[in-house]
Design a protein around this nucleic acid. Structure first.
Length: 641
RNA sequence: GCUCAUAUAGCUCAGUGGUAGAGCACUUGCUUGGUAAGUAAGAGGUCACCGGUUCAAGUCCGGUUAUGAGCUCCA
């Protein structure tokens, strides 16, 4: 048979030759380095026979694929075997690879703790030191079930039972022990190909990702080709953790949380300055693109939530208030708004709307409260009280596509101005439980997809992840350590207008329900500010920085001149402070730099005599001496977005 | 909500059953200096909260609350 290699060259081998034979035929060095092969696009073990003419490439640990195979063997063969050695009555569940590493889910008889990871790591090193060869055998469903019944591995059994294939279950063994694991493969041919690794954390995880199932213990690890790559990775994680908005929020004195109001932000003056600047920016842009700002009540009677459907579907996430009977004429139950939409419909419903009024776009910086489960809160990223840059577009079905396009363009221009050139778009389509006809869903999904495609953005589809009332687009940004957060959203709603009796008079003179589109660009100010802080590592763009300039005196003789500069800056609307403390200039520079103040003006005798300033920008060790007027002009200029 | 962990000075953290500690920050004194920490002294704590074990608990045990990592959830 003819084997075509990636460089286009062709080798003739006997049918039934293996990847290892092929590597050997090319050279002994490659045979030693080979860990698997890719045959016609799918990965195979080195020992798998190749029967027909094929395109084959040999995988080594130097490639992305090779690294992943190594991680896979490390978790499924080494970690699992080590855990079984130390805790023989542990049950094995699953152990896949993930970005930069792997995990394995176990059911332990007795819970283990983080300290035990060290022992497990040591045991793993022992396992690796055996340099065992890895072999495999193929089995039918029946045989495979029998094996794992005997091994008392109920999770493996269940995986086999649920599989839709019948006769090619692969069992992997190591030559020197009776450890066996079920695996789709491929695996390393031998444990000596394992590189450098570290177990990183311990966490709970539900079997099959379903919270109704038992919680298993998940061990996470990271693995690399060698120590150098491993250390580089660990270092990059450390660096990323320095950007954590919770840490920077403390250092920069932006906000805090406390027990009496979990998940709700106490904004300090510095943090609130960022918030206000961001809000002014968004407000201006909303106005420019045809939105009308409104404001709706915080606390609303349950009757409206019953009408909107929230009381039924969402009550456990709502803060419910009761009025002390002594102080109320009647006992009414209210809820803090978890969303602004019902309020906006109330405004829409005042007066009769014509098709000529559509699309009608309301915007609100609406403060919403949601009772999020305790384990889900995360700094500013997931909170119980947050302000959305919310908006609702009331339009006709025919206007959906053009409104989608307008929105994506609006969002990407805002994101770009805020420093995010890259973001992910997720299209979520119809779920099983839904309202509206299939025809409407077809049209709606197609309109969303067409709008993204027209603008040429990449996107991914999340099948069945839409809301019951309509499909949606989500716009996702990534935090310092790679966690994804949904920020912008664009959700079609065929339900609410009808429920809350919103309509317009069409060209035909008859009443119609408008389509409602729930949309937000930042999502929540809280989350977005968290992302901003992490994206810039605290060094926010000049216009957003809470303190923009510090005038730092070098000797007390120049105090008056320093104050004069401060006043000039303030007059220009610059957020400036003066630092006249009895400290050395190095000390002042260090302190204000660590607080991420963008510009430090150092003022000494020379500056005073020459009417100049010495300007130092954050992130640069350079200083420039400028004429005072020029410096002020330059600073004012950089304050414009 | 679930699993595991954590909670000590404003911050970062040490303290394995016997009188509560360090560095930084803070206050005061000396020092007026040229771009990331000048110097000395002082002040600062109901060791998250509730209960238990013990002659004795920051320390051991149980519970609560909050926080962290991950899982589930986020209409």
């Amino acid at each position: 048979m003819n084997i075509t290699l990636p460089d286009g060259s062709i080798r003739k081998l006997e049918s039934g030759s293996t990847g290892l034979d092929l590597a050997n035929s090319i050279g002994p060095g490659l045979a030693k380095a080979a860990i698997a092969v890719e045959v016609n696009g799918s990965q195979k073990d080195l020992c798998d026979p190749i029967m027909d003419d094929s395109e084959v490439s040999i995988i080594t640990i130097d490639s992305k694929e090779g690294l992943e195979i190594m991680r896979h063997t490390l978790t499924a063969q080494v970690l699992a075997r080590a855990v079984k050695n130390l805790y023989p009555d542990t049950k094995l569940a699953i152990g896949p690879t993930i970005t930069d590493g792997f995990y394995y889910d176990f059911e332990f008889k007795k819970p283990i703790s983080t300290e035990d990871l060290e022992d497990i790591e040591k045991e793993m090193k022992k396992v690796i030191a055996t340099n065992s060869a890895i072999t495999k055998s193929l089995h039918t469903k029946k045989e495979a079930i029998k094996v794992f019944k005997k091994e008392k591995e109920p999770y493996k059994e269940s995986i086999i039972k649920d599989s839709d294939q019948e006769d090619s279950f692969q069992l992997y063994y190591q030559e020197d022990c009776k450890f066996v694991d079920l695996c789709r493969g491929p695996h390393l041919p031998n444990l000596k190909h394992i590189g450098s690794f570290k177990l990183t954390k311990l966490a709970g995880a539900y079997w099959k990702g379903d919270s109704k199932n038992k919680m298993l213990t998940r061990i996470y690890g990271t693995a690399w080709k060698n120590d150098k790559d491993l250390n580089a990775y660990l270092h990059s994680i450390e660096e990323a953790e320095k950007r954590d908005h919770r840490k920077l929020g403390k250092e920069m004195d932006l906000f805090h949380f406390q027990e009496e109001a979990p998940g709700m932000v106490f904004w300090h003056p510095n943090g609130w300055t960022i918030y206000r600047n961001l809000r002014n920016f968004v407000r201006r842009r909303l106005q420019e693109s045809g939105y009308i700002e409104v404001n709706t009540p915080q606390v609303i009677d349950r009757k409206l939530w019953e009408a909107s459907g929230h009381w039924d579907k969402y009550r456990e996430n709502m803060f419910i208030t009761e009025i002390d009977e002594e102080h109320a004429n009647e006992k009414r139950i209210n809820a803090l708004k978890p969303m602004n939409c019902p309020g906006h419909v109330q405004i829409y419903n005042q007066g009769i709307k014509s098709y000529k009024d559509l699309p009608l776009k309301y915007a609100e910086f609406g403060l919403c409260h949601r009772y999020e489960p305790s384990g889900t809160m995360h700094g500013l990223m997931r909170v119980r009280a947050f302000t959305q840059d919310d908006g609702h577009i009331f339009c006709t079905e025919n206007q959906i596509e053009s409104e989608t396009g307008l929105f994506i363009e609006f969002l990407s221009s805002l994101y770009a101005d805020l420093g995010f050139k890259e973001f992910d778009i997720k299209l979520s389509t119809r779920p099983e439980m839904r309202v509206g006809s299939d025809e409407t869903w077809d049209k709606a999904e197609a309109a969303l997809e067409a709008a993204i495609k027209n603008l040429g953005y990449p996107y991914r589809i999340d099948e069945g992840d839409g809301a019951f009332y309509g499909p949606k687009l989500d716009f996702v940004l990534t935090d310092a350590i790679g966690r994804e957060w949904q920020c912008g959203t664009f959700q079609l709603d065929f339900n609410l207008a009808e429920r809350l009796d919103a309509h317009f008079i069409g060209e035909d003179g008859k009443k119609h329900n408008p389509v409602m589109i729930h949309r937000a660009v930042l999502g929540s100010f809280e989350r977005f500010i968290g992302i901003l802080i992490e994206n810039y590592a605290g060094k926010l763009p000049f216009w957003l920085a809470p303190q923009q300039v510090v005038v730092a005196s070098i000797i007390s003789e120049v105090d008056d001149y320093s104050i004069e500069i401060l006043e000039l800056l303030k007059k220009q609307g610059i957020r400036a402070e003066v630092d006249l403390r009895n400290e050395k200039i190095s000390y002042k520079v260090r302190e204000h730099s660590s607080k991420k103040v963008p510009i430090i003006l150092a003022i000494g005798k020379n500056e005073m005599n020459d009417k100049t300033v010495s300007i130092r920008r954050i992130g640069s060790k350079e200083t420039n001496v400028l004429q005072l007027d020029d410096a002020i002009n330059e600073i004012v200029k950089s304050n414009n977005l």
